[in-house]
Simulated assay, not measured.
Amino acid sequence: MNRAGKTLLVLALVAVVAMAFRVSWNALRDVARVVGADATAATLYPFVVDGLMALALVATLVLTDARDKRFALRVLATYTLASLVLNYVHGLVPELHGRAVDWGRLADWDPANWALVLLATSLPVGSIYFGSDLVAKVLHHRPAAAREPVDGQRVDTPAPLPHTSLPDTGHEVPQVTAPPVSTLVNGRAAAVQVPDPHAPHPARTPDAESADDALRQAQFEEAELERMRQDARRAYAESAQAGRPLSARALGEAFGMSESWGRKQILAVRDEEETRPRLRALDAAAV
């Protein structure tokens, strides 16, 4: 549907909702008067009930989390049913419009009257609670596309290396970027050793060939990931030697990975540096 059609559909919906609110407003106002509301409160009472229905409808359209959306739909269904009951009672007792009934009497049968009065008087309190909760959920709502990747998950494109605030020591910090693993794997797929065409080939089933292809693909990806880890550790070591060591976040973003991945590479470099002097001492002692 084009933009003009969508705009026309939304305007038609707003018109229908406005007319339906005007029809329901008369019944809810009369019910509010019978349960003890003054003229001003009775005039505002329909906005409390039907207004929360509109708010719940908007929240249902905005929220994407399944649990929050279900909550908004339940609020919408509850207040729609409550408004329907009060409108139905107003239709059964036309005297409510002229206030010819006793104060606080919505039904002749006492249990039914008590239930109806409880329903009519609890709706404003429920509007405060449910309305506040819906607004809080909408304000704290974060679209799925804006969420940060989980630990160890690659992002689509590598981020540029940010500038550090450490003092300049005259050495240039190397700028490191890394292409996605899938590009490296596909680029090196042609380098796979091709068997001798003159040698006899054993009969292979399609399932065996697909399993071998999956195994080779996994080996390629693991090899590229290991190469990327080595490049990251080398980049951190060079930056540390230059006097401006990269942070875990900067190292991870430079290779398109998470902060925890960068922290693991830094710890690996430090562990290697701690064990290296011991090896040298052992070699000197052996000589």
Rank of each mutant, 00 (worst) to 15 (best):
E222I: 00
L13C: 09
A72I: 01
P202K: 09
A42F: 02
V75F: 01
R249W: 08
V185A: 09
L73Y: 04
P179W: 03
A199M: 07
R70H: 06
M19H: 08
S258W: 02
A115Q: 04
A59W: 01
A203M: 13
A56C: 02
A268K: 06
L251Q: 03
A203N: 13
L251R: 02
A254R: 01
R278S: 10
L282I: 11
Q230F: 05
V101T: 10
R154F: 14
T169L: 11
R22L: 15
R234M: 00
T60A: 11
V117P: 01
Q230P: 00
G152C: 06
M257Y: 01
V150L: 14
T7D: 09
G170E: 03
V194K: 11
G187Y: 08
V58L: 14
D231Y: 02
A146H: 09
T40L: 07
E259T: 14
E221M: 04
L123V: 12
A235E: 02
A208W: 15
F130Y: 15
A115L: 12
V173Y: 02
A107V: 02
S210Q: 12
W261S: 04
S182W: 07
A32F: 04
H171V: 06
N2G: 14
Y88K: 10
D231R: 14
V16K: 10
L119I: 05
A268C: 03
K6E: 10
